[in-house]
C-alpha cells in the first residue's frame, strides 16, 4: 500500500499539475491582493474608534469610503480574474504548449518511421518463405481439418473446434458490451418506480419517429419471418457452408429490430423482455463454457468430445460444432436486439 503524503499540495508534481491546468496565479499578484485588502481594513478600524462627536460627522465619510473601498475591491477582483483568464496565454504555458506540440510531432514521426521500416522488411506477398505459408498449423488445418472436426467449412471447424476457447472469449465480449451499454444508457426508474420529468423529457425525442406506418407494417409482416428463417438457416449450416453463429445471429437480430420498428415495443415485449434476454444469454454462455471448460485444464489442447462426428456434410454432424454455433447465434441475436432497444428507449 502506498503512503499518503500529507504535503501533497506542495509537492513538485502537484505544483506542476496546477501549473498545467492553469489553476495557479502568479505568486506576487496574490500577495499584493491580500496586502491591499488588509491595509484598507486597518484604516477603517481606526476610524471607527474615534470619539462620538466625530462619529456622526464621519459617518457620511465612512459611507462614501466604504463604497469606494467596495468598488476598489471589485475592481481588483475583476483584474485578478482577468489575469487568471489570460494566464494560459502567457509565459510558461505557452512554452509548455510549444514543447508539447514538438514532442507530439516527434513521436508521430518516430512511429511512422518504425512502421514503414517494418513494412519494408516484410516478405513479398505470396512467396513460399513467408511465416503464413510455411506454418505447420495452417497446413494441418487444411489437410486434416475436415477429418478431425467433421466440418466441411474449415473456418467454422477452426473457430469452434480447434480454437473454441478463443470464440468463447469473443461471445463473452459481446455479452459484456451489452451489459456495459445497459449500465450506461438504462433509464433508471428510481426507487419508487417512477421516472422524473427530466428523464421523460429526454425520452421525448422518440415521439418524432413515425409510428404505425402501414407500408412498413405490411412489408415487415412478409419479411420478418423470411429474415429469421434465413438466419436460422445460416446458423444451422455454419459447418457446411459459409456462415455460422455470428453472421446468422446478426441476421436474426436484424429481423427482430425490423419487427420492433414496424410494430413497436408493446408487441415485442410479448415475447422479448429483459428476462428473455438474460435467460437466453446466460443459458447459451453457460452451455458453451461447460462444453469447452476442459480447455482450462488441458492448456487449450485439443481433446475429443466423445460425440461421433457423423458424415461430413450432414446438418447433424461434426460433434459439438452445431450446438456451439447455435449458442453463439443466440448470444449475438440477443445482443444486437438489446443494443438497439437500449439505445432507443433506455431498456430492453
Amino acid at each position: 500500500m502506498s503512503k499518503i503524503r500529507e504535503d501533497y499540495e506542495n509537492t513538485r508534481w502537484r505544483r506542476f499539475e496546477r501549473f498545467v491546468n492553469g489553476e495557479e496565479m502568479p505568486e506576487e499578484k496574490r500577495l499584493e491582493l491580500t496586502q491591499a485588502k488588509e491595509g484598507d481594513k486597518e484604516e477603517q478600524l481606526a476610524e471607527i474608534t474615534t470619539t462620538q462627536s466625530l462619529r456622526r460627522k464621519r459617518k457620511e465619510e465612512r459611507e462614501s469610503f466604504r463604497r469606494y473601498w467596495r468598488e476598489q475591491q471589485e475592481k481588483e477582483i475583476k483584474e485578478a480574474l482577468k489575469q487568471r483568464a489570460d494566464w494560459p496565454n502567457t509565459g510558461g504555458v505557452r512554452v509548455f504548449r510549444c514543447v508539447y506540440r514538438f514532442v507530439a510531432l516527434l513521436i508521430c514521426a518516430a512511429i511512422i518511421i518504425v512502421l514503414l521500416e517494418t513494412v519494408a522488411e516484410l516478405p513479398r506477398f505470396g512467396s513460399a518463405g513467408t511465416p503464413a505459408n510455411s506454418n505447420e498449423v495452417a497446413e494441418r488445418y487444411i489437410e486434416r481439418g475436415q477429418e478431425e472436426t467433421g466440418a466441411v467449412n474449415i473456418v467454422t471447424g477452426m473457430i469452434l473446434d480447434y480454437r473454441a476457447f478463443d470464440t468463447l472469449g469473443e461471445s463473452h465480449v459481446l455479452f459484456i458490451a451489452a451489459c456495459t451499454v445497459l449500465i450506461l444508457l438504462r433509464i433508471d426508474h428510481g426507487k419508487d418506480g417512477k421516472t422524473t420529468s427530466a428523464q421523460l423529457a429526454e425520452e421525448d425525442d422518440r415521439k418524432f419517429e413515425p409510428k404505425n406506418d402501414r407500408i412498413l407494417q405490411k412489408v415487415a409482416f412478409f419479411l420478418v419471418p423470411c429474415i429469421i428463417l434465413f438466419g436460422i438457416y445460416v446458423i444451422l449450416n455454419g459447418h457446411i457452408s459459409p456462415g455460422g453463429g455470428f453472421s446468422g445471429g446478426a441476421i436474426i437480430g436484424a429481423g427482430l429490430i425490423l419487427y420492433l420498428n414496424a410494430f413497436g415495443f408493446k408487441k415485442t415485449e410479448r415475447f422479448f423482455t429483459y428476462k428473455t434476454f438474460s435467460t437466453i444469454s446466460l443459458c447459451a454462455l453457460l452451455f458453451y463454457s461447460v462444453a469447452k471448460c476442459y480447455s482450462f485444464f488441458c492448456g487449450a489442447n485439443h481433446l475429443s468430445s466423445g460425440i461421433p462426428l457423423g458424415t461430413a456434410g450432414d446438418i447433424i454432424s461434426s460433434g459439438l460444432i452445431l450446438p456451439l454455433n447455435i449458442c453463439v447465434g443466440c448470444v449475438v441475436a440477443c445482443t444486437m436486439y438489446a443494443f438497439y432497444a437500449i439505445f432507443r428507449k433506455g431498456g430492453i
Binding site: F208, E209, P210, D213, I215, L216, V219, F222, L223, C226, N261
Partner: peptide
C-alpha cells in the same frame, strides 16, 4: 425480391422521418 421489397420501404420511412422533423 428482397431488395425490391425492402429498399423502397426503407426510403419511405427515412423520408417520413425527415418530413416530421
Amino acid at each position: 425480391c428482397f431488395f425490391w421489397m425492402a429498399s423502397p420501404v426503407a426510403s419511405h420511412v427515412i423520408a417520413r422521418l425527415e418530413i416530421t422533423t
